[in-house]
Design a binder for these strands. Sequence first.
RNA 1: GCCGCGUUCGUCUAGGGGUCCAGGACGCCGCCCUUUCACGGCGGUAGCACGGGUUCAAAUCCCGUACGCGGUACCA
Length: 493
Amino acid sequence: MSVRVRFAPSPTGFLHIGGLRTALYNYLFARHHGGTFVLRIEDTDQNRYVEGAEEDIIKSLEWAGMTIDEGPNKPGDVGPYRQSERKTMYAEYAKQLVDGGHAYYAFDTTEEIDEMRERLKKSGNPSPSYDSITRQSMKNSLTLPQDEVEKRLENGDEYVIRLKVPRRETVKFEDLVRGIVSFETGGLDDQVLMKSDGMPTYHLANVVDDHTMGITHVIRGEEWLSSAPKHMLLYNAFGWEPPTMAHLPLIMSPSGGKLSKRKAESEGIPVNTKDYISGNYEPEALVNFLAYLGWSPGDDSEIHDMKELCELFALDRVSKGGAVFNHKKLMWYNEHYIRETSVSELVPRIKALAEAQGFDTKDEEYLTKVIELLHERVSKIDEFVSMGSFFFEAPKEYDENALKKWKEDSAGFVKAYESKIEALSESDFIAANLKSALEETVAENEVGFGKVMMPVRIVTTGQGFGPDLFASLELIGKEETLSRIDSALKQLT
RNA sequence: GCCGCGUUCGUCUAGGGGUCCAGGACGCCGCCCUUUCACGGCGGUAGCACGGGUUCAAAUCCCGUACGCGGUACCA
């Protein structure tokens, strides 16, 4: 049987970075086995639905380089791919469960359930739940006379359908990441399967869908492990073969705990995939980084593109413990992928970024040279623009830190240097000559190289660091260089 | 509280009884290269949570403890 996996996010917001990794592992697994990657939208909670979330999910997956084989945007044979559109199916299956004695109607109001919880708490039960014991004293089709149940149903009284969890049973299953996992049903509650609004809960919907969509492997986050036994009970009740399970370790925040929006952002980690897109991260870097966050191929390799990851990926090599998100390592990957990208590929991307900020990037030849000079020193491609803005326009202000190196004698050295390069013809205004002019200035004044170079750098670029100064000046050109020196001298002296 | 899952350098991990006084990567530190910065090269720092077993031999198997994380909804 060929592998079919699904990524099943709920459209309650922007795609979380942890969700993206779950999707990635599903995708890699599918591709590794020549299987199918399905996107299913789990929108059974109408209260939490967020407009535009589905588009964000699809856009994010595409940006990361994952191709959806079947999904709401690309229907296959087992659609629809949004749970809200499969509503009638769930009701039928729930009825089937009730008829088979595996589920029952419950008419209790929220208040009545709260009361029950309060009462049990008082009598010493620290975590009361609607379960095989308490259901006996509640209003449901197990306790109410048959005719009253029918009457309530006919009257259109509000009801839910609950799973009738067996009293004492052990649910055991094999998880591809964790091995054998087992639970006692005594600790499970009679989970609601159908809500009073007619929508199924996640538990029912995911089981029905995974089965009817032919899903062979359920690969999801560890937060689902606790409800997995309920799902196994459901497969059993339906008489279906359950898919193979694999629960992934969670991505943790550096300060501990699940990587939540609040935590992550206070630690400088973007949580939503869209923030990586708008933040100009390299998708290849994020994918490589995420793949290694909780998985490793077992050798000493670190760098793999999507194609290689697909070849290497195996669920039994996924680690069990949670993995802390290390933003510095992500940046290392990002730098790596930028260096791997050819200058010609970079040109259009940086042109767009720079122009969006109102810079004139001149011609392509010029931009190419700018990129060559900065290629080895940026961490993210937007730094080509921020670090290289002086290539596009004269500095508007001088970096505060750099100015610390501006001393009493700096202006004099800059003037001395200026008079030397002023003498250079346009065609002689090249890096080698600009460098020897500086060396001469240094020698004539009997000072260190930096005493002259740093001030020149500051007045021409506004910064105390950057690409090779002489190559930069050559690119900026004689006229512009001299004009920058003059206007800086006016401001700084 | 209860249930479940986990625990190898600061972080991500390799390791699945002897070849491990534990290997790689990020970070950090130092040196070299560069008369700036960065890149690159070389080197260094640092870890098997704890306690019991099993065994000739345990990071690797078993039990317990501690700690961490997840779940405990008519949310997913």
